[in-house]
């Protein structure tokens, strides 16, 4: 696992989370700029899915493969589902869904690091 990718995912997600929190407090619906930013995170996550699978194939570490790949896939799904689910309601609740989705990405990324470290389920 690339430390830079993990760092990027966490930093970008926290920035997105911060701005979403501001939007939520001000009761402003997220606009294209926010969704563009989320798309950037999603690109990093897709790259991580590919890179993570390659790294899993090469590593000698004691990593639980099924668990690791399921987290890699799950973290890729979190944002699209969150965006989709929030777009049905362009209110404060919709913005809150985006915030939760971004925080889910942070949580999953931290778990990914743990699993890669071989600590297990």
């Amino acid at each position: 696992m690339n430390q830079w990718v993990t760092g990027a995912v966490i930093v970008l997600s926290l920035v997105a989370g911060g701005s979403l929190a501001v939007l939520m407090i001000r009761d402003v619906a997220a606009q294209d700029r926010t969704f563009g930013f989320l798309a950037v995170i999603e690109l990093v996550l897709v790259a991580q899915l590919v890179g993570g699978c390659i790294a899993l194939g090469r590593t000698d570490r004691d990593v639980e493969g099924v668990l690791f790949v399921s987290y890699l896939v799950g973290i890729v799904l979190a944002l699209p589902i969150g965006v989709f689910w929030s777009l049905a309601e362009r209110t404060r609740a919709g913005t809150a869904v985006l915030l939760v989705a971004v925080l889910t990405v942070v949580a999953l990324q931290l778990r990914l690091e743990t699993i890669w470290g071989g600590v297990g389920a």
């Binding site: 799950g74 979190a78 589902i81 969150g82 689910w85 929030s86 049905a88 309601e89 209110t91 609740a93 919709g94 809150a96 869904v97 939760v100 989705a101 889910t104």
Partner: peptide
């Protein structure tokens, strides 16, 4: 599943998965 319920559905969904 609307308003605060929308957030709740998402969180419950994440936990279900």
């Amino acid at each position: 599943s609307s308003g605060p319920g929308r957030v709740l559905v998402f969180v419950y969904g994440v936990f279900a998965v």
